[in-house]
Design a protein around this nucleic acid. Structure first.
Lengths: 214, 214, 214, 214
DNA sequence: GATGAATGAGTCTTCATTCAT
DNA sequence: GATGAATGAAGACTCATTCAT
């Protein structure tokens, strides 16, 4: 422990450099996309020269993948969060959704990861696949579990749709894209959006009277 | 009109050239993204040389924008389709959704336009804006109108969410992305997805008993 | 034939360009070696820019190999020359050697090819092998045939050494290296060298009296 | 002298460092040529880092020259060997040649020095000149002396060729190149080559009967 | 003495764009 | 209209060399 504190200035910087570069790479890749980003600009953002970037990362490609891995939002706490929920399932779902929007949709980092998946996916299919398996799928699984519990508890309809979390969470993804595309240009009422999402999902569009028809 | 029919084979081909180039550009831009696409490859796909492409389009940028405009799926018929719907609103909605998935989600062209918006949006913001105003917004408006009529008819709940068509249509967008990312790698049951979407949207997740709680 | 004369200025230049580049490449590679030669300098020597070189040759490596093939001295006429020789074999050998020195040793092009084989051989082993099979080996074979005929005619000693043309021709190779290394700095009496080579080869070093000893 | 023996292990290693570096440099330069050799790889071969190499040698160029000097095969013993020869000159020559092949041609180090002279000669002309004066010329001189003695003794023909040792020794050089180029790929009968060399040189190609002709 | 992070000049290679034919 | 040779700016990547620690 004492030894850690004795890290020289050099050692400290060395340890921090790769992370600084990864952060800078994120910003540049976000701004211009993989192809149009210049390694030199990433370096400049950190305040070093190209050579330094190449000292830590063999190629631009490797750097991109490292950046992606580094930036992937951990979802462990999402799962943990779900475990703490109590009360009626509709309320749990509402709480989960608020948390989900907060952590995934309104977080710029998460949003840009999503953009990378779309825009660089064909160039980095392994990256997409890995990210899906490690981050997105577990997130969906967590949601599905919650719904299944709600069904088991008799509080949620036993609809086959509950087995498809992409359905239930898609408005959040939609909002992510909205932010990506129009964030500055077209403001929108996020609170209303989320509330609408919850309301619609829980209650559906149809009036009580009509519901019997179906 | 008569003159048009008298156009020789060569003249016909000439007239078609720009369109052929636009189609080829679409394929290449889809495959590699704006920056990584080579004008020469677009030309080769048509069977001409670079010079010819530049004869019709001043720059690569102009070509991209022209291609985008050319490929934008017309939505006039969607609107027309909506007008033909009759019967109870839940059924109309269902019919509309099926039509929407068919025309928008399962159509490769529409999907790739969506991808362009995400991936090249920051490079072509005017293109994104125009496309939103001219294609996406009208589509959403059409959906909103349908819902409003349903509410007026007393067949749909007067939820504020119905004013936000992004909410109701988001699963379709979600499925589009799924296709973009995993089309070949991870097949999925589209029918179940769409049915789930409709079911969830119309009826919500909550059981009837619970619904009173909220 | 008439058509050939109608080649436009453009077409003529196009046909000549690759050859010009190959010649320029030869000079630059000779002067600096493969690694230290800049593609841009090759271009400048022709009076064009890098891009043009890359228009004709995909990579520097490909250019080097093409240059090597282009510059390889054809040996067909050497063989032809041998067939025209008449008279006593010692005289034929002498004539052949003079021709060989003229064509192979005193020709700068041949000399530099030899240097390439030594200096770039490990980088281009296939090139070395091909050159050996196509040019050097046939040359040696031609010499061996001549010697064998001389032996059959009873005019040459049936020494096993005659089966190894590298032995009999090595002084020529040696002189090639001398030129490469010291051409300008240390002039030498080439006539005496060649005459010495012929004399030594035909008569050996040993006096007649001694010869019986061995 | 006593002090040298008291040198600690560490001190010994330190004293050896420059030599280790020189050896490593030899291997790397042999493998890749001057330009393509990386100082870092030389360092790695010794087990130190770049900085250490630069501590002992100012530049890569200096290192190359130092390496070359260090590796130059001393010829003093060759000369000494010559002095020990007795008996008839043809036998002395034979013995000398065997020794020469052993020490110069079959010795990898000598061979690679030869390669350096050819391939890096234009970059390091002073090195070539020095090496010629200090190593190659003396070697040739020694051979010439031997031949002159043989002539004086009446055992060798008073051919002018004997004044040109490059002529008499060239097959050895030839074999060196053979090894450089094809060592692994095309094995050859070295014994036969050397014997052929000696036979041809001593006795010539021409049959006794023919010899009178010339 | 030794280290290795950092530099930046240097090179290969690509490709949008031009224009003479 | 169409071609395609030529241009040259741009960007990835390498590596000799430096120097603070």
């Amino acid at each position: 422990m004492a030894e850690k504190k004795k890290l020289g200035v050099r050692a400290q910087r060395k340890a921090a450099r790769p992370l600084e570069i990864l952060d800078a790479a994120f910003e540049e890749f976000v701004a211009h996309g993989y192809v149009a980003t210049r390694v030199e600009d990433i370096a400049a953002r950190v305040g070093v020269t190209k050579g330094t970037v190449y000292f830590y990362f063999e190629t631009k490609e490797v750097l991109f993948e490292a950046m992606f891995k580094h930036m992937a939002v951990p979802f462990a706490d999402i799962r943990a969060q779900l475990k703490t929920l109590t009360g009626p399932y509709p309320d749990r779902i509402k709480a989960f959704f608020y948390f989900f929007y907060e952590r995934i949709v309104l977080d710029r980092r998460s949003r840009e990861m999503l953009r990378f998946i779309i825009s660089e996916g064909s160039r980095f299919p392994q990256v997409v696949d890995r990210h899906y398996e490690e981050t997105i799928a577990p997130m969906f699984d967590a949601a599905r579990e919650l719904f299944e519990e709600g069904v088991a508890a008799g509080e949620l309809r036993a609809s086959a749709a509950l087995q498809i979390p992409e359905l239930t969470l898609s408005p959040a993804i939609m909002l992510s894209f909205w932010y990506m595309l129009f964030a500055d240009r077209k403001p929108r009422d996020v609170k209303a959006f989320i509330d609408g999402h919850v309301d619609l999902l829980l209650n559906g569009m149809v009036t009580r009277a009509e519901r019997t028809i179906k």
